[in-house]
Design a protein around this nucleic acid. Structure first.
Lengths: 249, 249
DNA sequence: GCCGATTTGTCCGTATGTATC
DNA sequence: CGATACATACGGACAAATCGG
């Protein structure tokens, strides 16, 4: 349970929006009204609203108010903004899932790999290939590179489960930032060996640099998705003169 | 030029990070140090830092400080987070571009279209098909649906240029929020008619709902990109108990 | 392990500016 | 023009995490 006041308010407002308590296309109660209701400061209400803006629920306009722009959407494999592991994602969408390790090796970053992944040349790495099954069908082929010094004791058995869970629960390392790039690539023989692409000849490719709380990039992953099950959602806010946001985390 | 104090500080810090003035992997000066340097309040410094977190430049950690996690990346057609029109994007990447209107029609949203786009059934729309050329080659096929009541006087001639520019400069309507979904789809005959896909048989498809500052969704666009030139970047921040951000705009 | 200094996170209050009606 | 709304900026207080001695 979130104990932050602004997080609680965020959830209350979000629930009201989703349930239709606030009509779509109209203004939410003003900040001052919400301040009275939640008995808090202006700052706190505004932080809650900021979260709703970020997540595409509302939109603010100076002098007017806060518009409800909620439109229900189909749930998807990937959800905007968040860093979600494969296991978390399938659990949320109530799909059955399994992970299989097809390669577990160690390597050192040469210049080419360093260029491609962002690791410094010479970094000692695990290189793992994993398959993800959704409802019994192989849908994702992952190429994972982990810094060996950040994952002492990683074994093929552990890699069958959620590596993120291992990191957070066992090593008490928290994942903070993730830089993603989405592209579309032609299928390779390896892709075809494991994934039944049917009539497709491309995959959706998500390349991912992940940073732990020490600010070190400890993972580079390339996730190759069957195009039919790939879906990525995102909200963007046009900023006045580039950035207009406040705060973050 | 941004006149907000926190935006100015954001740019100063960003420039320092990009130029290497702050070493990668290390901590930035503490908030108190920055407060002295910029002679401002703590809130203002924090808002600037929040922008850097959002854009993947830094990462904060309570009790420690602010890590510089900057890694230079290749420029891309799409940039994370921002709402950028085709014209803006190609201009930024210094590519030549052109837009051609191949269909300019009017229609009314039936149930199927309403379901697919998010417009209310019965909404009067423009339906426009446009091609975007980059360096002389057709790379993107757009299906645009605009609410007619939001774009009085839209003509094929205007649609050859940037519709966004027309909206903002002529009608003084500002675009605020954009909800995007990225998928991969098989090429249709219409795709193949206009785009030379070479060996590919799929396209990267960006579906887009755009809201103006009145909170009304006035545009639905499906952009079908040649896979070889499609690239989408994004930063995600893992939030403690879901949302931890403050403020937005 | 404890304690104090440092650093970021949360929360409050107030004042003023700007846009809208 | 005044009233209302959100936006910016300042200030202070305390909590929580981190680090050094």
């Amino acid at each position: 349970m979130p104990q932050n006041k602004y997080t609680q308010i965020y959830y209350v407002l979000k629930k009201r929006i989703e349930s239709g308590e606030y009509p779509v296309g109209y203004l939410l109660p003003s900040e001052n009204t919400l301040i009275e209701e939640f008995e808090c400061s202006r700052n706190t209400v505004r932080r809650a609203i900021a979260g709703l803006v970020r997540d595409g629920y509302v939109q603010t306009r100076q002098g007017r108010g806060v518009y409800n722009i909620f439109h229900p959407l189909e749930p998807s494999a990937y959800t905007m903004g968040t860093i979600e592991s494969f296991v978390e994602s399938t659990r949320r969408t109530r799909q059955s899932s399994a992970t299989r390790v097809i390669l577990f090796s160690e390597c050192t970053a040469d210049d080419e790999l360093a260029q491609r992944t962002g690791f410094a040349p010479g970094t000692a790495l695990f290189y793992i290939q994993r398959l993800h099954e959704i409802d019994g069908i192989v849908r994702i082929l992952n190429h994972n590179y982990f810094r060996r010094d950040c994952l002492p004791g990683l074994t093929p058995q552990l890699a069958e489960g959620s590596v993120y869970h291992y990191l957070e629960a066992e090593l008490h390392v928290s994942i903070v930032t993730s830089k993603r790039t989405i592209t579309v690539e032609k299928a390779t023989p390896l892709d075809r060996k494991w994934i039944d692409l049917g009539e497709y000849d491309c995959l959706a490719v998500v390349s991912n640099q992940t940073f732990n709380s020490d600010g070190v990039m400890f993972e580079y992953t390339q996730s190759r998705h069957h195009p039919a099950i790939f879906r990525f959602q995102d909200n963007a806010v046009r900023r006045a003169s580039q950035t207009d946001r406040e705060y973050s985390r």
